[in-house]
Amino acid sequence: MPTFDIMLPYYGDVSLMQDAVRSVLAQTDPDWRLTVVDDGREPGVPEWFAELGDERVRYQRNPENLGITRNFQKCVDLLELERAVILGCDDLLHPHYLATVRAILEEYPGIGMVQPGVEVIDGTGAVVEGLVDKVKRRLYAPAVENRARMGGEELAASLLRGNWLYFPSICWRSDAVKPVNFRDGLSVIQDLALVIDLLQRGEEMVVDTEVVFQYRRHAISESSVQAFSGTRFTEAERYFREVADRLDAQGWTKAARAARFHSASRLHALTMLPGAVRRGGSSGVRTLASHAFSSGSSTS
């Protein structure tokens, strides 16, 4: 039985999804199984998978649309193997992704999460570094030479200041993720919530710098549309308040302060304000301004 469950919750562009699947098929390490959970109705998709002829690829189409969070949840429920990757349906693995992750796991057996090196691509596949990713790398991501093990309150506080992870690139220990799951009521910030929950349960992460993953960032995505409307930040504000209380109860006061101040989220809202003004959405402008300029109860 293979070691790696690669889960692909799919909805959207067919050609980008097919490229993602091909990047799995191209792995130099063959020890994987791919499960595609189709939450859409695009024509020809079931037939394309039937023609692949690779027994390691499993495909299923949901009888009804579940939405982002519930489809991700279904992917977690379907996990059976030791390790899991929840691949974005428009992201790409380098051919040596699994080989690199396996080497990390051999050095750190039992680790809950592995964040390998990532490069960002645009809708055409060109490698780019926009403002969001520059801020992630230069202001919030820790300085790592080659490889580092992290966890506990320090990592939680770092991520709550600014989430520098690339969720679809992470390799998870399945028996750590399945009991925790995604939080109901979250759609955009669910990735951060899952990681913080795991850290609170004592799991740790290895961060590696070798680039083995391409994360696709589109000019207009589900998260950016929600950002202009302010919906994203309404969700974020609610989550940061709730998690700060939980962290205080655990005695992680530094991480709780970081959650209440959520500096990167506030900066993101500030950068979205001009676009919201140009779009003429007064409700979105008010929500963004409130999130960006709220003082928080303390600083981190």
Rank of each mutant, 00 (worst) to 15 (best):
P9A: 13
Y10E: 04
Y11H: 15
V14R: 14
M17G: 07
A20H: 07
P30Q: 05
P43G: 01
P43Q: 00
P43F: 00
F49Q: 02
E51M: 02
Y59D: 00
Y59Q: 00
Q60H: 07
I68Y: 12
F72M: 08
L81V: 05
L81A: 08
E82M: 00
R83I: 00
L92F: 02
L92N: 01
T100Y: 06
R102L: 05
R102Y: 03
I104P: 07
E106S: 09
G110Q: 12
G117A: 01
T124W: 15
V132P: 13
K134S: 14
R147Q: 05
A148R: 06
G152P: 01
A156K: 10
Y166R: 10
P168N: 05
S169A: 13
C171G: 06
D191V: 00
L194H: 06
G202Y: 06
Y215F: 13
V225T: 11
Q226P: 09
T234D: 11
E235I: 14
R238Y: 11
E242N: 09
T253P: 04
A258W: 03
A258D: 05
R260I: 05
F261R: 11
R266C: 11
T271I: 13
P274R: 08
G275N: 15
R278E: 10
R286V: 09
S290C: 09
S294N: 14
G296C: 08
